[in-house]
Design a protein around this nucleic acid. Sequence first.
DNA 1: CCAAAACGGTACTGATCGGTTCCGTTTAGA
DNA 2: TCTAAACGGAACCGATCAGTACCGTTTTGG
Lengths: 180, 180
Amino acid sequence: MPTRARERLLDTAEELFYADGIRAVGLERILSTSGVGRASFYRHFAGKDELVVAVLRRRDERWRQWLDERVSALGGGPLAVFDAIAERFDRADFRGCAFINTMVESADPAGGAHQVAVAHKQALTDYVAGLLRTHGAPRPDETAERFVLLMDGATVTALRERSSAPARRARELASLLLAA
Amino acid sequence: MPTRARERLLDTAEELFYADGIRAVGLERILSTSGVGRASFYRHFAGKDELVVAVLRRRDERWRQWLDERVSALGGGPLAVFDAIAERFDRADFRGCAFINTMVESADPAGGAHQVAVAHKQALTDYVAGLLRTHGAPRPDETAERFVLLMDGATVTALRERSSAPARRARELASLLLAA
DNA sequence: CCAAAACGGTACTGATCGGTTCCGTTTAGA
DNA sequence: TCTAAACGGAACCGATCAGTACCGTTTTGG
């Protein structure tokens, strides 16, 4: 039974985690920023780790829902995924992919956060494979893996270049792959 | 005038930073693992930040030197960069690209660590452009950017899949780009 | 051989980490 | 309206963080 405090905690934590990194953000800051009391936090979450997993799970669902909406609005073709992420790259608060960042920060593959991140990429790959299958592309599963590799490459490149150009370069490579 | 203690600090810090992340490794652990006294550390480095930058600078030089050696041994062609990184992906202690990880962990673009990471990617891009130019590839600078995007995409994918397969997929995409 | 530099160990600082507990207030449903 | 749950605030806990100061020992070069 989620309350308003729980939502505020998730909202604040997601924003701070994405902007500064999970390890870099202490509970102190999450509590003072959200205005939630310390005791209330532990009424909703067993600890920071559980908050992290809850934040990532929610972000995973929302992000993939957002992608689906943007892809539909951009024509519905597989290559539209690159147009969609290009929009994200241009935002001032862009800080890469929260799930790649999580895998980097939470090194332990057995940790909950790491596993949510892996699951997110698998769900994304399945989604792209569906787009490819719908458009009659051959070898949709293998091609989807290449598409996600290109999306991830574009994302980490954009984090460094602070530009949406990498998304367009990745799209060209994906287009080349479809034509082959 | 570097001493043995300084080298031990750099060796230990590089290993721990890469394995667990920069923020996750405290000075306490670096000192106990390396066997260097606390005072000795501060005789060599002004603080942890300076150690981090020194570690990254040294790793940048050594990594690019290693890449050049492997590329030469693997034929010297531009596509050999993917064969080289595939070897790294197979190692049990593979934890992605230390410089991508640094950019993720050290969010502040103005920070020293972040800047060393950006410089590393630029140096790598220049190196790949040189390979492409040597082999008569058209548009070597633009193509090098695509190559590095593919290398980074393969690296983060390998971090998740724990396999060298992403390097081979990236190589195929790069090969497609050269043929176009 | 001896002096000076480099060194390892220990004890300390203030700040912050995640986490626990209690208390008084606010909110919302029966 | 009245009760019970949800809440915010604050005082704690032990552990660890980066960083400082002083100690006696080891190493090394002139």
